[in-house]
């Protein structure tokens, strides 16, 4: 699948944002009223909203965006719209209370935190539901998204232990995703032979493409990544996304350290997300003899 840099950056950022919002909703920590709270909540909202806003830039026809709320019964994308907006709305009073030190009860925060998790869950299911992309159609997809959410949120909220645990889970999720992902396409057992039904006659290969200039399908769904790029990127994803943060989290905590960890984690998350897209192979590529 086409790894659009903006989509990668923004899904990564909004994942972290919802993670941070979840921790703040849980009151873990409750930032000091005033600037401190404003900064914490502001960062969470900024990342989450920014990501959502960016996703609308990716729409061909954003003027209809509101219609995306209509199909929550079947569509994970519609569900994501609901959960994300609900999260942002429900957490608003909590944020206000924290900022202005109003001391309102935190019940809504708990609800908001659950919704934040659901939001990221729905996002992951947008990908995870697709049988057409075997690498995504796997439990590792929600695991990855939630892992990044938890790790990013914990790091940004300065929670060392949860961050450590989340990074461990994330590392496992990444390894599992890489491991099972690499064989997912083969296990889905679709070939140009089954895509065309001509496999029963013999070995099927492309003679001529249906068009010599590329089209939407090829740009969107067929992206060939060289093996030599994959290995270092996987190391970066695993190293910067989980391993290095784990090591650094063992050091005495300080805001500067957390900022550093967040930056490193972000690099890893971006690399992982790039791979998530770039390595995902859509079955339509079989018609073009490419994946």
């Amino acid at each position: 699948m086409h790894p659009a840099p903006s989509v990668i950056l923004f899904t990564v950022l909004s994942g972290m944002g919802f993670g941070l919002l979840a921790f703040l909703g849980l009151g873990w920590p409750v930032p000091a009223p005033g600037w401190m709270a404003f900064l914490h909540w502001g960062l969470g909202y900024g990342l989450a909203v920014g990501g959502l806003a960016a996703s609308t830039f990716h729409l061909g026809n954003p003027k209809n965006a509101l219609k995306a709320f209509s199909q929550w019964q079947t569509s994970w994308l519609s569900r994501e719209a609901w959960t994300s907006v609900a999260t942002l709305v429900i957490l608003a009073p909590v944020a206000l209370s924290d900022w202005l030190g109003l001391g309102w009860p935190r019940g809504l925060g708990l609800v908001g935190a659950v919704l934040a998790v659901l939001t990221v869950g729905t996002t992951s299911m947008i990908y995870g539901q697709l049988k057409t992309v075997p690498r995504w159609h796997s439990p590792t997809t929600p695991l990855l998204f939630l892992g990044f959410m938890a790790a990013g949120g914990a790091i940004l909220s300065g929670n060392a232990l949860p961050a450590l645990l989340a990074c461990l889970v994330l590392a496992a999720a990444l390894i599992a995703a890489f491991h099972f992902g690499d064989t997912a396409f083969a296990r889905a057992a679709q070939t140009t032979g089954s895509a065309t039904g001509l496999g029963r006659i013999g070995k099927v290969t492309v003679f001529e493409q249906p068009h010599t200039s590329p089209n939407y399908l090829m740009r969107e769904m067929i992206h060939v990544v060289g093996r030599k790029h994959v290995r270092p990127l996987r190391l970066i994803a695993l190293g910067a996304g989980a391993a290095l943060p784990i090591l650094l989290l063992l050091l005495p905590a300080s805001p500067v350290l957390f900022a550093l960890i967040a930056a490193i984690h972000l690099i890893g998350a971006a690399a992982a997300r790039w791979l998530f897209f770039a390595q995902a192979e859509h079955v339509v590529g079989l018609y073009y003899g490419r994946r």
Partner: peptide, 19 residues
């Protein structure tokens, strides 16, 4: 009603949709 999100094209195994 379409917002051009492209998800349906992703979901189609047969490459039958073009934005």
């Amino acid at each position: 009603a379409c917002i051009g999100c492209g998800l349906c094209a992703w979901a189609c195994p047969y490459g039958a949709r073009e934005l």
